[in-house]
Design a protein around this nucleic acid. Structure first.
Lengths: 151, 151
DNA sequence: ATAATTGCAAAAGCTTTGCACGGAA
DNA sequence: TTCCGTGCAAAGCTTTTGCAATTAT
């Protein structure tokens, strides 16, 4: 990616934050950029460790706070399917996830056709604002490894 | 419920546990019974507090351990849609849940038609063993309350 | 200049672990 | 009698909080 393009994206993120009434601090821009560039559904700790070298003074509390803020602003989504820790996804469009019970990572699960919009709205008195389709099982790599071990 | 019927259900639970290779201790029977009789998706702490009066020596560690055991044996399911704590459901048949962001309780969500079985099995290299459909929003009571407050 | 944000340290939950004792089979 | 299971206390993590110092606007 060109230097100019990188700068352009950074500016776009800054504008986005200011439109939300938030200050565009280097920490927030970096966290947002990390999430957009790493679609691995990172945990808070993973984001923290990835950015710590570039921001030696970065604190976990800041990462927690920023993620909560971005989530409430609808810029990212909180994933709860990993029972051990929070994970975040900058892709807020509807898609299913899978939690691999072997490597404990979260993957996008392709090919799940759900009529997401039909589920939102009112339903038997409930107001449905958000839907997640979560799976648990094995990712391709762990599945292959398990087959090998059995053989 | 008659005394005989209660005893009968207790015996059935004991048999079920022994078939799984587990000892039928009073604590385990009580936890299982509580989950079957309280379909409120209780947290570990809720189960602990409910049973503590009848089992003054009961420990949280025992509740945690028993729930993990029962889950791995497929007798109950772990729900992760409440980001603050684990909840459990003795109903292991496919059904959707809703997390009310106001009262923070978990409800069964009626009327969601998902072809659950079609989602299980192999899919693009992934092995899908379990599926959850989780929603966030407002339960009927909190929704009514919010409408009232707005008026 | 001013108000929002960060970073630190401490605290607060939730969950797990190790081990001696007790109880189910 | 033999192990499995329980309870306790301590530890381990994840997440939150309060506040003084810093920084974006």
């Amino acid at each position: 990616m060109e230097r100019n393009e990188r700068q352009k994206k950074r500016d776009e993120r800054a504008v986005k934050l200011r439109r939300l009434g938030l200050r565009a601090t280097p920490q927030r821009l970096a966290i947002l950029a990390y999430l957009e560039e790493n679609r691995t559904h990172p945990s808070v700790e993973e984001i923290y460790h990835a950015l710590k070298p570039r921001f030696p003074s970065l604190s976990l509390a800041t990462v927690y706070g920023t993620l909560e803020l971005l989530e409430q602003a609808g810029q990212i989504q909180l994933l709860t399917l990993d029972p051990e820790r929070r994970r975040y996804d900058s892709d807020t469009t509807p898609h299913a996830h899978l939690y691999c019970r072997s490597c404990k990572r979260v993957y996008d699960l392709p090919g799940v056709e759900v009529v997401w919009d039909k589920l939102l709205g009112e339903r038997e008195g409930f107001l449905i604002e958000q839907i997640w389709v979560d799976a648990a099982g094995l990712c391709p790599a762990c599945r292959a490894k398990q087959d090998r071990d059995k053989a």
